[in-house]
Amino acid sequence: MTVKADRNNVFVAGASGATGRRVVQELRKKGFKVRAGVRDAEKARSSGLQVDNKVELGNCNLVDAAKQKGISKFVLMSSLLTNGAASEKYLRSSGLEWTVVRPGGLSNKPLAEVGNLIVGKEDTLFGRPSDPGKDISRDLVAAVLVEAVTQPGASNKVVEIVSSKDASELPPDQWFSNI
């Protein structure tokens, strides 16, 4: 899933997916106008994606389109263990301001059941049994993606995120500060 932002307008690719829908909801709560990128508009509507004057359905060739349109920020949701996949490398070399968010195993459980956020730098949180956490709530992933759009400290960073019931609560303004 990809989030591209330009001031108060945000494009979310994969908006009809389980995490993408949550990102759209979080952005709407914060007052953003959202363009929701989906493969199948009818499937998106039937999945519960609310389309109104603040959400528009559309598609584009993501990084190149962002450059062409003069988009100021590009946030990419990747995955743990990708270790700089081709799409990440292309984004990093694009000249755009970017953030890559690599979550662990995505859980539909609420935050209270999965635990608090753990943030690590690139290639540090692998989800092994000895690591501090493996799974992360999709709701929390959505919140991190939205914060990556709005926080200047998130720019040009790769962050890996998991959660654990043993982790202390980390305020959003610190999510990108130690990376």
Rank of each mutant, 00 (worst) to 15 (best):
R39I: 11
D40Q: 07
D40R: 05
D40K: 06
A41Q: 08
A41V: 12
A41G: 07
E42Y: 02
E42R: 09
K43V: 11
K43I: 10
A44Q: 00
A44P: 02
R45T: 07
R45L: 09
R45Q: 08
S47T: 12
G48N: 08
L49S: 02
L49R: 00
L49T: 04
L49N: 02
Q50E: 15
Q50S: 10
Q50N: 14
Q50T: 15
Q50D: 14
V51F: 01
V51C: 02
V51K: 00
V51W: 03
V51Q: 04
V51M: 09
D52T: 11
D52V: 11
N53D: 15
K54T: 15
K54V: 15
V55M: 02
V55Y: 01
E56A: 05
E56D: 10
E56V: 10
E56N: 09
L57W: 06
C60Y: 06
C60A: 15
C60T: 15
V63Q: 01
V63P: 03
V63E: 02
V63H: 01
D64S: 12
A65H: 09
A66W: 00
K67I: 10
K67S: 07
K67C: 03
K67A: 06
K67L: 09
Q68R: 12
Q68N: 06
K69A: 15
K69L: 10
G70Q: 02
I71V: 14
S72V: 08
S72L: 03
S72R: 03
K73F: 00
K73S: 04
F74T: 05
F74Y: 09
V75W: 00
L76N: 05
M77Q: 04
S78C: 07
S79M: 07
S79I: 09
S79H: 09
L80Y: 01
L81A: 11
L81S: 12
L81I: 13
T82Q: 11
T82F: 05
T82R: 10
N83D: 13
N83M: 13
N83K: 14
G84A: 05
G84Q: 06
G84I: 10
A85R: 07
A85W: 04
A85L: 10
A86L: 07
A86N: 13
A86F: 06
A86K: 12
A86M: 11
A86S: 12
S87H: 14
S87K: 06
S87N: 13
S87A: 13
S87F: 08
Y90A: 15
Y90F: 14
Y90E: 15
L91I: 03
R92W: 03
R92A: 08
S93G: 11
S93A: 14
S94H: 05
G95H: 00
G95F: 02
L96R: 01
L96M: 02
L96V: 05
L96E: 01
W98K: 01
W98N: 04
W98A: 03
T99M: 03
V100K: 02
V100Q: 01
V100P: 03
V100D: 05
V101M: 03
V101C: 01
V101H: 00
V101L: 06
R102Q: 06
P103F: 02
P103C: 05
G104A: 05
G104C: 05
G104L: 02
G104K: 00
G105L: 14
L106I: 11
L106G: 05
S107M: 04
N108C: 09
K109Q: 10
K109R: 11
K109A: 08
P110E: 10
P110A: 09
P110T: 13
